[in-house]
Nucleic acid binder design. Structure first.
Lengths: 346, 346
DNA sequence: TTGTAGGCGTTATCAT
DNA sequence: ATGATAACGCCTACAA
């Protein structure tokens, strides 16, 4: 068995430098360094380097109740939407000396509660949360307890937490506008879950965009999906078809719902975009290689994550900062799933 | 400003139960519970519950040098290959009372070193590492220092660390066999980086599979990609085409390299599978919706992650356990990117 | 400018 | 069966 040399502690450094541990602590900490003699500082730093000293963050946390760590609460890492948010957040946090603790909730409230509890007990200094529901008791609680939270992507009703989201209204408007320009008059909306702010915002934006374009808003052309997933998108589209609704285009709540439509097209021998045009939302990776390449609304997820991290760091440094809500600009990416309306319609 | 009620500590529980903190500790800890009077245990537990007591893992770590946390070292979370590994690992770790710290290295050695350092300083009890290179000084070092490491997906040369990988040889053999059955005789291989065990293993397996099938192995039909990415796959395929090589099928090192080929097909007006068949590796999500749907070798990544976590927990509980290397079974998923060879060839 | 003392919350060790 | 004491490694008063 190999004997593991224990990591050097502050006392080891102090001993080597011939000073007291306190002095070593002060010398090593940029905050308190001015308090100590320049020569001593140099000696201590040299000692620390020669021993390969790394402060023990656990001991530090215990004493200071800080951790230089923030929690990222993600509903599902396998949804390609979220990894770019994570990377964006890390791109800001790591250079600032913070670490990110990523947890998956699997869209499960109990698991979310347990994970958040675990983060809190490890003294995370704030949370970036991507799991928000409009009615979200846990987040309401955390907010009431003064836990620093920044929401990404979705918001919670009734609390004033800072949030960074895509501009759903503008995005949906650009999608509807694009379809209208192509001559589509009967456009369906496969809405995301109405338990999420994004689902509601996009559905509302759809209604407004349609009427703004002088089209008739037909509520029977709007179906809610239970989850933001392919299977639910497929189910929603099937229900429209089976009810005999007529439409020539679909605005999907997100890309996965749009891809679910592709499955139904294959089942029923429909052609996209010849029979039906489809627009997604998010611009997740690889859409350009789909059959057909999916027209979608691009959201700058990396920037969403980065901005959320910046905002969280701001609130950590200045707790009295007022909550802001930032809308990140979206852009329409036109690909092959949308085309001018044909004579036939459906 | 809201006053945050500090979390109750063990002393609070002890005081409420009318016992000493030590006793409360023993009563709450299943390991030591038998040492204390059943009545006392009940009193303490009741007190703990009424206060909502949660042990402070930081203090516990400081004292015990344990953390019930393991680190997951991932090269790039936006590569859809890795999230399922993460979830598989979590599916084992969380129920066992462990947490997972996920870190992204961006394929950068310095960043990896920093992240691993940070994990170690937080007392993680082991590492699940997906970033292995054949020549990997950091991992060699960690191994020499006795750090518990389980490798996933890829291995390191020269050290005997347990590893969980897909069965590259069998997977490539099934891909080559499929193409041979379709009549292909001149098959190219766009190999992954030869700095990774996977890249090497698949290239070697390709050579063997080709000759096993009685085909001629032509080294000019094998090109190494610098990274496991679309752009590199595209570059490699272009180099073959520009050199005027003749082949009717491609075995790509992984799915991303295969998708890079799609870009080149589009550039040059080639049709897949009519002009060239392509097989990928990994079966990442959404391949069934690509144009054309990609034939690939499926690797059970979720299970890879789960198995790695199980193995790591085993080594934590029984450090003398000998390192095993597990090959997870792969399966060929035939889709639309492969077809019988046509007369023309190229 | 530096040192001393004490404590963050928990558990290991020794004593009762 | 329970209590007292000390220690994990660090930092923050306070004292010198």
């Amino acid at each position: 068995m190999k004997k593991l040399r224990a990591a050097p502690t502050l006392r080891d450094v102090a001993a080597l430098a011939g000073v007291h541990a306190t002095t070593a602590s002060r010398a090593l900490n940029p905050q308190t360094r001015p308090l100590v003699n320049a020569d001593t500082v140099r000696k201590v730093i040299r000692a620390a380097e020669s021993l390969g000293y790394q402060p023990n963050p656990i001991a530090r946390s215990l004493k200071t109740a800080r951790s230089f760590t923030v929690g990222l609460v993600i509903p599902d890492l396998t949804n390609p939407l979220f990894p770019p948010i994570v990377r964006g957040a890390e791109s800001v946090l790591l250079p600032a000396g913070y670490n990110a603790w990523i947890v998956n909730t699997d869209n499960d409230a109990d698991r979310e509660r347990a994970q958040v509890e675990s983060l809190r007990s490890r003294q995370v200094e704030g949370l970036i949360v991507a799991t928000a529901l409009l009615d979200h008791p846990l987040l309401t609680e955390l907010h009431a307890h003064g836990v620093r939270v920044v929401l990404v992507n979705r918001r919670v009703g009734g609390i004033e937490a800072p949030s960074i989201t895509g501009d759903d209204a503008a995005g949906v408007a650009s999608a509807v506008g694009h379809l209208a320009d192509l001559g589509h008059r009967r456009i369906a909306h496969l809405a995301g879950p109405q338990s999420t702010s994004t689902g509601v915002a996009r559905a509302r934006a759809f209604r407004h965009a349609v009427t703004d374009r002088g089209l008739e808003y037909d509520p029977t052309l709007v179906v809610e999906c239970e989850h933001w997933a392919e299977a639910d998108g497929a189910r929603a589209l099937r229900s429209l078809l089976e009810a005999g609704r007529r439409f020539t285009a679909v605005v999907a709540g997100n890309d996965l719902i749009a891809l679910g439509c592709y499955d139904v097209f294959a089942e029923r021998g429909l052609s996209c975009p010849d029979d039906v045009s489809v627009v997604g939302f998010n611009d997740m990776p690889f859409l350009d290689k789909m059959r057909p390449p999916l027209t979608t609304v691009s959201v700058p997820h990396y920037e969403v994550g980065a901005e959320a991290a910046r905002m969280l760091l701001e609130t950590i440094e200045d707790p009295d900062r007022v909550a802001r809500s930032v809308l990140m600009p979206t852009s329409l990416v036109v690909r092959g799933s949308t085309a001018p309306v044909t004579g036939s319609g459906r």
